[in-house]
């Protein structure tokens, strides 16, 4: 403790702890109560069988884990999570990255116009986004299929098609999150010193070279943040359109790990299996984070 202005060393020591802990207490208490305690509770529950209503949960040991890991649905959810993530990385990391680069270094007029309009969808609710796209995707009369038919192209039933349902739902999430990621990346990009880029221009570097060799390394900290958020938050964001529009269907073709947990909790009321799936999901996410850290940390340049 640096600050000691009260008389008596003992009192100072106590007071020295009182203030910092008093500052931390509210936040820590809320996080402990509503994030970490439920986590422990979930871990415990994963060894039981319980339908949320019966008075006594039944101890079943590792059965829930074994059954989950042996079920087709869990692995479907697992691979779909990867599929969603890959699409979101393209639409919510790569695309806004390039867009932000163009806006920050290749275009000089209309900055505010672009920023304002591209950010606009991110102030909307995912629920709003979901119902808008429910209409856009309507197989019989929706605008997307009306346009495709006009152009003589096949018009698939987006939300009930095995092939299209995941991209279709990912696009909803991507549309809503694009603007936020774009602004965050833009914030990183405008901080890149212009002199570096001008110097490269003088050496006749192409725009792509400038992006890849100069801008990208200098903004890798921001990009890493967006990457992690896209991977972790993306699978949670995508849950809303899944739950509202397809309920995981057709035939579990649009389920992901987050929806899988929800389904076993509030649709099947097999909370033990849901908890086991939650624990496995956390381990997977943890592993992903660790990998990202290991792989990416080497190449990351921190702006600060």
């Amino acid at each position: 403790m640096k600050i000691a202005r009260e008389p008596g060393p003992k009192f100072a020591a106590i007071k020295g702890y009182l203030v910092p802990w008093g500052c931390l207490a509210p936040a820590l208490a809320f996080l402990a109560l509503f994030t970490f305690w439920p986590l422990v509770s979930t871990l415990k529950l994963s060894f039981y069988q319980w339908n949320m209503v019966s008075p006594t949960p039944k101890w079943v040991g590792l059965t829930n884990y074994l059954e989950i890991l042996r079920s087709r649905e869990f692995w479907l959810a697992f691979w779909h999570t990867l599929e969603y993530t890959l699409i979101l990385l393209a639409l919510n990391l790569a695309l806004p990255y390039i867009t932000a680069y163009i806006l920050s270094h290749l275009v000089f007029k209309g900055q505010n116009f672009y920023r304002a309009l591209i950010f606009l969808p991110s102030v909307l609710s995912l629920a709003v986004a979901a119902v808008i796209f429910l209409w856009l995707y309507n197989p019989l009369a929706g605008p997307v299929n009306a346009l495709l038919r006009l152009l003589g192209l096949p018009a698939p039933p987006w939300l009930s098609s095995y092939r299209w349902v995941i991209p279709a739902l990912a696009v909803i999430t991507a549309w809503k999150s694009f603007g936020y990621n774009f602004i965050v990346l833009l914030a990183g990009l405008v901080a890149v010193p212009l002199e570096l880029i001008e110097a490269a221009r003088l050496e006749k570097a192409s725009n792509w070279q400038i992006f890849w060799r100069i801008v990208r390394p200098l903004t890798s900290g921001t990009a890493l943040y967006v990457l992690v958020m896209t991977v972790i938050i993306g699978s949670q964001y995508v849950f809303v359109p899944i739950q509202m529009l397809t309920n995981g269907g057709p035939d579990q073709a649009s389920t992901n790990l987050v929806f899988f947990i929800y389904q076993y909790t509030f649709n099947f009321f097999q909370t033990g299996k849901a908890a086991a799936a939650a624990v496995i999901t956390l381990i997977i996410f943890g592993g992903l984070l660790f990998l990202q850290k290991r792989v990416l940390e080497k190449g990351v340049y921190y702006e600060n």
């Binding site: 931390l24 936040a27 820590l28 996080l31 509503f34 994030t35 970490f36 305690w37 439920p38 986590l39 509770s41 979930t42 529950l45 949320m52 972790i232 699978s235 949670q236 849950f239 790990l257 987050v258 929806f259 947990i261 929800y262 909790t265 509030f266 909370t271 849901a274 908890a275 939650a278 999901t281 956390l282 996410f285 943890g286 984070l289």
Partner: peptide, 21 residues
């Protein structure tokens, strides 16, 4: 340690905590 513990909460999907909550 405490700080990183806080940060970890970002990575807990809400479906994990929703039922107990």
């Amino acid at each position: 340690t405490l700080f990183y513990l806080c940060l970890l909460s970002i990575f807990v999907p809400f479906t994990v905590t929703m039922m107990p909550n």
